[in-house]
Design a protein around this nucleic acid. Structure first.
Length: 609
RNA sequence: GCAGGUGUAGCUCAAUUGGAUAGAGCAUCGGUCUACGAAACCGAAGGUUGCAGGUUCGAGUCCUGCCACCUGCGCCA
């Protein structure tokens, strides 16, 4: 009797289906859904239609049989059969109140995962010596949210920032900077970024690769890229390769300089993480370089297990359902990023014991991860050290576009850097908060500059995060700062504002209502209550599908329902003391759910704004 | 050429994974502040869900074929 109405309805109708349906009904979904429209009640059961089909009976008759077989006396009003065979259900006030009592705990009704375990989340994925951009923003925001959601459900989540800190590109930058005699102690990330681009441009010609790309019908993008590279490259390549060999060999001076590159990069990353208030720090660094001693063992395992074979001089893993194999070792004996990714999966599953490995990475790497995941399973790493199946999941996200639907640029036309975007959002949030604080009636009136700046940051960053997390991540997404910081309508600040208003009422209320009996008679109160009771289910759905936007959409519904309630029902001037206390308790529970949900998205919820 | 993704209101996005009349926000128009915070609320208008078939009680969702855009495609990461 301690379950929410929806779960109870599912159980009850599942039993009724088994009773009247016999074998035909085995394992059938009771198809309990929140009703689409108020006139259809609170919930509907859609199982009669499918069941009637299997039984060769009339759907409305089957619906009646289900109702007769289901004991709903203490849960619902008399069910109504509608349309072709829908069963409309309205929850009794007492059942609603009871469910609300049960939910009103610290956990807010959220139950742990049935099979929790170690989950590794690969996020951020910066490259050393490269400026962070909006792609890293998405990876970081989405990965951080997924980490929070899975942690909330009792999993042991390990964030890993898989830095691009190893291999030829880094060696090229090192070579470039050393050859130019640059003082690495005085350099900043902008300089590093410039050196990186220059080194890339110098070294990237590959005539053989161009021919191969043409012969293999590579995309025009790839061919254009190769054509853009020109002679002189082989010399640069050779020099960079020498640097790489020396670095890998442990050359002390090189290692020293290499570490400086990393330090400069990570200082900027930490700055961005702090501004964003994401849980990401040096302790989550787990760069490619940390796998350097694992690469040969990976290759040995693949060779000894006959999972890979030599093709045209390279070592490849064949895919069962695809022509193109996965390259894991070059003809010259060098390793590739696929090798590193395999080493990471190997460590995460065989040593860390992960049951889920999640990659918050750009959707353009879809094919790559498909190959790597399949190869990992072939190699036997689809099962962890404890014999538990491992879910390998690419949480892909689309590209970030500007309002013109082209890759995002700043007003000056350059590639937008992450820090410039964050600074702008924070500045605009702060300006907005400060302006509103000037009104004498505002609860923020009189707050000092520091307090207003903290709120402004929460508002500006909240706007960016909500814009990113409120849509389906796999789709390309239009980053429009003007729209985000309008702070009106379906935005992060809308949710924060609703939360702040709840805080405001609770401050005025100032009494302990944790045991007060529920009223919930107004339609807006009922709607809020029914929504709140879905929280557990929503969090689990978001975790299972790895889609934070489900939580975002739910929270928007909560905020809308609260605003409607706020408009319709006076709390402090309620008609009776009991009703005031009931409404205060409702505000308190809504506030906690909203704050908890925003926390799962990584969005701060100020008490005033 | 092959593979994958996307296509929903003027714009930006949803749609509980096959359920009833496809929902929000922005923009437009019209109402609400001496009333717990108007960053809000209520209402109007806005749709052949890219096109054409198919599956069934029922399709934005599933299957087939087209169209458009995006992305990827062996020795870079």
């Amino acid at each position: 009797m301690s379950l929410d109405p929806e779960t109870r309805l599912k159980d009850t109708f599942a039993a009724a289906i088994a009773t009247i349906g016999g074998d035909a009904a085995h394992g059938m979904d009771p198809a309990i859904r929140p009703s689409g429209k108020p006139e259809f009640g609170d919930f509907q059961c859609n199982a009669a239609l499918g069941l009637a089909k299997k039984m060769g009976a009339n759907p409305r008759d089957v619906a009646q049989s289900l109702i007769d077989a289901a004991d709903l006396s203490d849960l619902c009003e008399t069910p109504v059969i509608a349309g072709p065979g829908f069963i409309n259900l309205t929850v009794l006030p007492a059942a609603l109140q009871q469910a609300m009592d049960v939910m009103d705990t610290e956990a807010l009704g959220v139950t742990p995962d049935s099979d929790p375990g170690v989950v590794v989340i690969d996020l951020c994925g910066v490259n050393v010596a490269k400026q962070m951009h909006v792609g890293h923003l998405r990876s970081t925001i989405i990965g951080d949210s997924l980490a929070r959601i899975l942690t909330r459900l009792g999993n042991d989540v390990r964030r890993e920032n898989h830095l691009g800190d190893w291999g030829l590109p880094i060696a090229m930058v090192l070579h470039e900077l050393r050859a130019a005699g640059v003082d690495l102690d005085a350099i900043n990330l902008t300089d590093l970024d410039a050196a990186y681009r220059e080194a890339q441009a110098k070294a990237k010609l590959d005539a053989a690769g161009l021919d191969a790309a043409r012969a293999r019908h590579s995309g025009p993008h790839r061919i254009a890229e190769l054509e853009a590279q020109n002679e002189g490259a082989s010399a640069s390549r050779a020099a960079a390769a020498e640097t790489l060999v020396a670095l890998q060999g442990g050359d002390e001076a090189l290692r020293h300089d290499w570490q400086k590159l990393i330090d400069v990069t990570m200082t900027a990353v930490q700055d961005a993480s702090d501004k964003l208030s994401v849980t990401l720090g040096p302790e989550h660094n787990c760069g490619e370089s940390t796998y350097r001693d694992d690469l040969q063992p990976v290759i040995t395992h693949l060779e000894e297990g006959n999972f890979a074979h030599v093709d045209d001089g390279a070592l490849v893993v064949d895919m069962p359902d695809r022509e193109r194999p996965l390259l894991v070792r070059k003809r010259d004996g060098g390793f590739l990023y696929a090798t590193t990714d395999l080493a990471a999966i190997r460590r995460r599953t065989q040593q860390t014991g992960a049951i889920r490995c999640i990659y918050a990475v750009d959707a353009r790497q879809r094919d790559h991860f498909r190959d790597v995941f399949d190869a990992a399973r072939i190699a036997g790493w689809g099962v962890n050290a404890d014999g538990h199946d491992v879910e390998l999941h690419h949480a892909a996200f689309g590209s970030v576009l500007g309002p013109d639907k082209r890759p995002l640029k700043t007003r000056s036309g350059t590639n937008a850097t992450l820090s410039s975007l964050l600074d702008e959002a924070i500045a605009r949030g702060t300006a907005e908060v400060t302006e509103r604080s000037l009104r004498a009636s505002s609860p923020t009136h009189g707050l000092d500059h520091t307090a207003l700046a903290a709120i402004g940051r929460a508002v500006g960053i909240g706007a960016i995060k909500y814009a990113d997390l409120s849509g389906d991540a796999v789709k390309d997404y239009v980053f429009d700062m003007d729209r985000m910081v309008a702070f009106e309508g379906d935005t992060g600040p809308y949710l924060q504002y609703a939360h702040a208003r709840m805080c405001s009422i609770l401050r005025k209320g100032g009494e302990d209502v944790s045991e007060s009996p529920w009223g919930l008679e107004d339609v807006t109160e009922r709607r809020l209550a029914l929504l709140l009771l879905r929280y557990d289910q929503v969090v689990h759905a978001a975790a299972a599908s790895l889609q934070p936007h489900r939580i975002a959409g739910y929270l928007r519904e909560i905020a809308e329902a609260f605003s409607a309630f706020y408009q319709a029902c006076s709390v402090m001037q309620a008609e009776s003391d009991d009703l005031r206390r009931s409404r205060l308790r409702l505000c308190d529970l809504v506030r906690r759910v909203l704050a908890d949900g925003l926390q799962l998205l990584g969005i701060d919820a100020p008490e005033r704004m």
